[in-house]
Design a binder for these strands. Structure first.
Lengths: 111, 111
DNA sequence: TGACAATAGTGTGCGGCATACAGTATAATG
DNA sequence: CATTATACTGTATGCCGCACACTATTGTCA
Protein backbone atom coordinates (compact mmCIF):
# COMPACT_ATOMS: atom_id res chain seq x y z
CA UNK A 1 0.00 0.00 0.00
CA UNK A 2 0.97 3.63 -0.55
CA UNK A 3 2.91 2.71 -3.64
CA UNK A 4 3.84 5.07 -6.41
CA UNK A 5 0.97 6.31 -8.47
CA UNK A 6 2.36 4.94 -11.69
CA UNK A 7 2.89 1.62 -10.03
CA UNK A 8 -0.72 1.44 -8.93
CA UNK A 9 -1.94 2.62 -12.30
CA UNK A 10 0.08 -0.06 -14.03
CA UNK A 11 -1.53 -2.73 -11.94
CA UNK A 12 -4.96 -1.39 -12.68
CA UNK A 13 -4.24 -1.20 -16.37
CA UNK A 14 -3.34 -4.84 -16.24
CA UNK A 15 -6.75 -5.52 -14.77
CA UNK A 16 -8.39 -3.40 -17.41
CA UNK A 17 -6.74 -5.24 -20.24
CA UNK A 18 -7.78 -8.50 -18.78
CA UNK A 19 -10.61 -10.00 -20.70
CA UNK A 20 -10.18 -7.60 -23.55
CA UNK A 21 -7.30 -9.75 -24.67
CA UNK A 22 -9.72 -12.43 -25.73
CA UNK A 23 -11.70 -9.90 -27.66
CA UNK A 24 -8.56 -8.74 -29.40
CA UNK A 25 -7.47 -12.22 -30.28
CA UNK A 26 -10.85 -13.35 -31.54
CA UNK A 27 -11.14 -10.23 -33.65
CA UNK A 28 -8.02 -11.18 -35.59
CA UNK A 29 -8.68 -14.84 -36.19
CA UNK A 30 -11.21 -14.71 -38.96
CA UNK A 31 -8.09 -15.44 -40.94
CA UNK A 32 -5.72 -18.19 -39.76
CA UNK A 33 -2.69 -16.83 -37.96
CA UNK A 34 0.11 -18.32 -35.95
CA UNK A 35 1.00 -17.15 -32.48
CA UNK A 36 4.05 -15.13 -33.17
CA UNK A 37 2.45 -13.24 -36.02
CA UNK A 38 -0.48 -12.40 -33.77
CA UNK A 39 1.83 -10.93 -31.18
CA UNK A 40 3.30 -8.65 -33.80
CA UNK A 41 0.04 -7.73 -35.39
CA UNK A 42 -1.53 -6.81 -32.09
CA UNK A 43 1.54 -4.89 -31.07
CA UNK A 44 1.29 -2.80 -34.21
CA UNK A 45 -2.28 -2.04 -33.31
CA UNK A 46 -1.34 -0.91 -29.82
CA UNK A 47 -2.09 -4.10 -27.91
CA UNK A 48 1.04 -5.41 -26.26
CA UNK A 49 0.79 -9.03 -25.30
CA UNK A 50 3.59 -11.24 -24.14
CA UNK A 51 4.07 -14.42 -26.13
CA UNK A 52 4.01 -16.34 -22.89
CA UNK A 53 0.57 -14.95 -22.28
CA UNK A 54 -0.77 -15.51 -25.74
CA UNK A 55 0.16 -19.14 -26.27
CA UNK A 56 -1.68 -20.49 -23.27
CA UNK A 57 -4.59 -18.27 -24.19
CA UNK A 58 -4.78 -19.74 -27.67
CA UNK A 59 -4.73 -23.25 -26.31
CA UNK A 60 -7.37 -22.45 -23.77
CA UNK A 61 -9.62 -20.97 -26.39
CA UNK A 62 -9.13 -24.02 -28.54
CA UNK A 63 -10.00 -26.27 -25.65
CA UNK A 64 -13.17 -24.27 -25.12
CA UNK A 65 -14.03 -24.81 -28.74
CA UNK A 66 -13.71 -21.23 -29.90
CA UNK A 67 -10.66 -21.85 -32.03
CA UNK A 68 -9.33 -24.56 -34.25
CA UNK A 69 -5.75 -25.06 -35.25
CA UNK A 70 -3.49 -26.96 -37.57
CA UNK A 71 0.21 -27.32 -38.11
CA UNK A 72 1.53 -25.94 -41.34
CA UNK A 73 4.72 -27.51 -42.57
CA UNK A 74 4.90 -25.75 -45.89
CA UNK A 75 6.41 -22.60 -44.41
CA UNK A 76 10.08 -22.15 -43.74
CA UNK A 77 9.42 -23.69 -40.35
CA UNK A 78 6.50 -25.48 -38.82
CA UNK A 79 3.87 -23.17 -37.44
CA UNK A 80 0.59 -23.74 -35.74
CA UNK A 81 -2.19 -21.72 -37.31
CA UNK A 82 -5.23 -20.81 -35.27
CA UNK A 83 -8.58 -19.64 -36.58
CA UNK A 84 -12.16 -19.09 -35.42
CA UNK A 85 -14.46 -22.06 -35.23
CA UNK A 86 -18.13 -21.62 -35.94
CA UNK A 87 -18.77 -21.42 -32.22
CA UNK A 88 -15.98 -18.92 -31.91
CA UNK A 89 -17.60 -16.73 -34.49
CA UNK A 90 -20.84 -16.67 -32.60
CA UNK A 91 -19.17 -16.05 -29.29
CA UNK A 92 -17.17 -13.24 -30.79
CA UNK A 93 -20.29 -11.57 -32.14
CA UNK A 94 -22.08 -11.78 -28.83
CA UNK A 95 -19.03 -10.66 -26.94
CA UNK A 96 -18.52 -7.68 -29.17
CA UNK A 97 -22.07 -6.66 -28.52
CA UNK A 98 -21.56 -6.90 -24.78
CA UNK A 99 -18.33 -5.01 -25.03
CA UNK A 100 -20.08 -2.12 -26.70
CA UNK A 101 -22.70 -2.05 -24.00
CA UNK A 102 -20.02 -1.99 -21.36
CA UNK A 103 -18.10 0.80 -23.03
CA UNK A 104 -21.29 2.77 -23.31
CA UNK A 105 -22.13 2.33 -19.64
CA UNK A 106 -18.70 3.34 -18.48
CA UNK A 107 -18.42 6.26 -20.81
CA UNK A 108 -21.74 7.31 -19.41
CA UNK A 109 -20.39 7.08 -15.87
CA UNK A 110 -17.31 9.09 -16.56
CA UNK A 111 -19.07 12.29 -17.53
CA UNK B 1 -15.38 -27.47 -22.76
CA UNK B 2 -17.95 -27.39 -25.52
CA UNK B 3 -20.34 -25.59 -23.27
CA UNK B 4 -23.30 -23.59 -24.42
CA UNK B 5 -22.48 -20.42 -26.22
CA UNK B 6 -24.28 -18.22 -23.75
CA UNK B 7 -22.48 -19.94 -20.95
CA UNK B 8 -19.13 -19.21 -22.48
CA UNK B 9 -20.12 -15.67 -23.27
CA UNK B 10 -21.19 -15.11 -19.70
CA UNK B 11 -17.82 -16.19 -18.44
CA UNK B 12 -16.07 -13.91 -20.85
CA UNK B 13 -18.26 -10.99 -19.91
CA UNK B 14 -17.19 -11.54 -16.35
CA UNK B 15 -13.62 -11.21 -17.48
CA UNK B 16 -14.45 -8.12 -19.47
CA UNK B 17 -16.05 -6.38 -16.54
CA UNK B 18 -13.11 -7.16 -14.44
CA UNK B 19 -11.00 -4.13 -13.88
CA UNK B 20 -13.66 -1.82 -15.21
CA UNK B 21 -15.35 -2.15 -11.87
CA UNK B 22 -12.62 -0.09 -10.30
CA UNK B 23 -13.03 2.54 -12.94
CA UNK B 24 -16.75 2.66 -12.26
CA UNK B 25 -16.30 2.93 -8.56
CA UNK B 26 -13.64 5.61 -8.71
CA UNK B 27 -15.75 7.61 -11.11
CA UNK B 28 -18.50 7.91 -8.53
CA UNK B 29 -16.50 8.76 -5.46
CA UNK B 30 -15.70 12.39 -6.05
CA UNK B 31 -18.58 12.71 -3.64
CA UNK B 32 -18.64 10.58 -0.47
CA UNK B 33 -20.92 7.59 -0.78
CA UNK B 34 -21.62 4.53 1.26
CA UNK B 35 -21.52 1.06 -0.13
CA UNK B 36 -25.16 0.35 -0.53
CA UNK B 37 -25.88 3.64 -2.25
CA UNK B 38 -23.08 2.91 -4.69
CA UNK B 39 -24.57 -0.43 -5.56
CA UNK B 40 -27.85 1.22 -6.40
CA UNK B 41 -26.35 4.12 -8.26
CA UNK B 42 -24.24 1.86 -10.43
CA UNK B 43 -27.15 -0.43 -11.03
CA UNK B 44 -29.20 2.47 -12.34
CA UNK B 45 -26.37 3.25 -14.71
CA UNK B 46 -26.27 -0.27 -16.03
CA UNK B 47 -23.41 -1.62 -13.94
CA UNK B 48 -24.59 -4.50 -11.80
CA UNK B 49 -22.33 -5.24 -8.91
CA UNK B 50 -23.10 -7.45 -5.98
CA UNK B 51 -22.70 -5.90 -2.56
CA UNK B 52 -20.49 -8.79 -1.58
CA UNK B 53 -18.20 -7.86 -4.42
CA UNK B 54 -18.22 -4.15 -3.79
CA UNK B 55 -17.38 -4.09 -0.11
CA UNK B 56 -14.11 -5.95 -0.37
CA UNK B 57 -13.27 -3.78 -3.36
CA UNK B 58 -13.78 -0.61 -1.38
CA UNK B 59 -11.60 -1.87 1.38
CA UNK B 60 -8.92 -2.90 -1.02
CA UNK B 61 -8.92 0.49 -2.65
CA UNK B 62 -8.70 2.14 0.70
CA UNK B 63 -5.80 -0.04 1.67
CA UNK B 64 -4.05 0.97 -1.54
CA UNK B 65 -4.58 4.57 -0.61
CA UNK B 66 -7.01 5.49 -3.35
CA UNK B 67 -9.93 5.97 -1.05
CA UNK B 68 -10.56 7.34 2.39
CA UNK B 69 -13.52 6.61 4.56
CA UNK B 70 -15.29 7.65 7.69
CA UNK B 71 -18.22 6.48 9.70
CA UNK B 72 -21.22 8.74 9.72
CA UNK B 73 -23.45 8.41 12.72
CA UNK B 74 -25.78 11.25 11.92
CA UNK B 75 -27.84 9.21 9.48
CA UNK B 76 -30.67 6.96 10.46
CA UNK B 77 -28.06 4.28 10.87
CA UNK B 78 -24.30 4.26 10.92
CA UNK B 79 -22.78 4.14 7.49
CA UNK B 80 -19.28 4.14 6.21
CA UNK B 81 -18.73 6.78 3.57
CA UNK B 82 -15.96 6.34 1.03
CA UNK B 83 -14.44 9.05 -1.11
CA UNK B 84 -11.44 9.66 -3.37
CA UNK B 85 -8.17 10.56 -1.75
CA UNK B 86 -5.79 12.89 -3.53
CA UNK B 87 -3.88 9.87 -4.77
CA UNK B 88 -7.13 8.33 -5.88
CA UNK B 89 -7.95 11.36 -7.92
CA UNK B 90 -4.68 11.19 -9.75
CA UNK B 91 -4.94 7.48 -10.30
CA UNK B 92 -8.43 7.89 -11.61
CA UNK B 93 -7.37 10.52 -14.10
CA UNK B 94 -4.51 8.42 -15.38
CA UNK B 95 -6.66 5.35 -15.51
CA UNK B 96 -9.37 7.08 -17.41
CA UNK B 97 -6.82 8.14 -19.96
CA UNK B 98 -5.57 4.59 -20.33
CA UNK B 99 -9.09 3.30 -20.60
CA UNK B 100 -9.78 5.58 -23.51
CA UNK B 101 -6.63 4.41 -25.25
CA UNK B 102 -7.67 0.84 -24.72
CA UNK B 103 -11.15 1.39 -26.05
CA UNK B 104 -9.69 3.11 -29.04
CA UNK B 105 -7.30 0.28 -29.77
CA UNK B 106 -9.95 -2.35 -29.49
CA UNK B 107 -12.50 -0.45 -31.48
CA UNK B 108 -9.81 -0.14 -34.06
CA UNK B 109 -9.23 -3.88 -34.05
CA UNK B 110 -12.87 -4.76 -34.41
CA UNK B 111 -13.40 -3.06 -37.75
C1' DT C 1 30.68 -20.54 -36.74
C1' DG C 2 28.48 -17.87 -33.75
C1' DA C 3 24.92 -14.73 -32.56
C1' DC C 4 20.53 -13.18 -32.93
C1' DA C 5 15.64 -13.44 -34.51
C1' DA C 6 11.72 -16.32 -35.02
C1' DT C 7 8.63 -19.50 -33.03
C1' DA C 8 6.40 -22.65 -29.81
C1' DG C 9 5.78 -24.21 -25.53
C1' DT C 10 5.11 -24.82 -20.00
C1' DG C 11 4.39 -24.00 -15.05
C1' DT C 12 4.12 -21.35 -11.15
C1' DG C 13 2.23 -17.66 -8.47
C1' DC C 14 -0.46 -13.57 -7.48
C1' DG C 15 -4.58 -11.40 -7.20
C1' DG C 16 -9.35 -10.29 -8.33
C1' DC C 17 -13.74 -11.26 -8.53
C1' DA C 18 -18.08 -14.03 -7.66
C1' DT C 19 -20.61 -16.41 -4.53
C1' DA C 20 -22.29 -17.63 -0.44
C1' DC C 21 -22.70 -16.66 4.04
C1' DA C 22 -23.36 -14.12 8.57
C1' DG C 23 -25.01 -10.47 11.16
C1' DT C 24 -27.48 -6.15 12.82
C1' DA C 25 -30.55 -2.33 12.81
C1' DT C 26 -34.50 0.11 10.98
C1' DA C 27 -38.89 0.47 8.66
C1' DA C 28 -43.28 -1.51 7.33
C1' DT C 29 -47.12 -4.30 7.85
C1' DG C 30 -51.00 -6.62 9.74
C1' DC D 1 -46.92 -5.23 19.23
C1' DA D 2 -44.87 -8.94 16.79
C1' DT D 3 -43.20 -10.36 12.69
C1' DT D 4 -41.30 -9.80 8.44
C1' DA D 5 -38.96 -7.22 4.96
C1' DT D 6 -35.40 -4.26 3.65
C1' DA D 7 -31.19 -1.52 4.32
C1' DC D 8 -26.62 -2.10 5.27
C1' DT D 9 -21.97 -3.85 6.49
C1' DG D 10 -18.99 -7.30 6.71
C1' DT D 11 -15.96 -12.05 5.91
C1' DA D 12 -13.95 -16.18 3.67
C1' DT D 13 -13.29 -19.45 0.29
C1' DG D 14 -12.30 -20.93 -4.24
C1' DC D 15 -11.89 -20.61 -9.14
C1' DC D 16 -9.58 -18.90 -13.01
C1' DG D 17 -6.86 -15.89 -15.88
C1' DC D 18 -3.15 -13.50 -16.68
C1' DA D 19 1.91 -12.04 -16.28
C1' DC D 20 6.35 -13.55 -16.04
C1' DA D 21 10.21 -16.15 -16.29
C1' DC D 22 11.65 -20.05 -18.20
C1' DT D 23 13.23 -23.84 -21.83
C1' DA D 24 13.85 -25.34 -26.52
C1' DT D 25 14.33 -25.46 -31.48
C1' DT D 26 15.10 -23.75 -35.97
C1' DG D 27 16.30 -20.39 -39.32
C1' DT D 28 19.32 -16.49 -40.90
C1' DC D 29 22.78 -13.34 -41.47
C1' DA D 30 27.35 -11.40 -40.41
Amino acid sequence: MMAEIEEIVNGLILELRRGTLILSVLSRLDQPKYGYSLVQELSEKGIEIDAGTLYPLLRRLEKQGLLESSWELADSRPRRYYFLSETGRQVYDRLREEWRKLVFSIENLMN
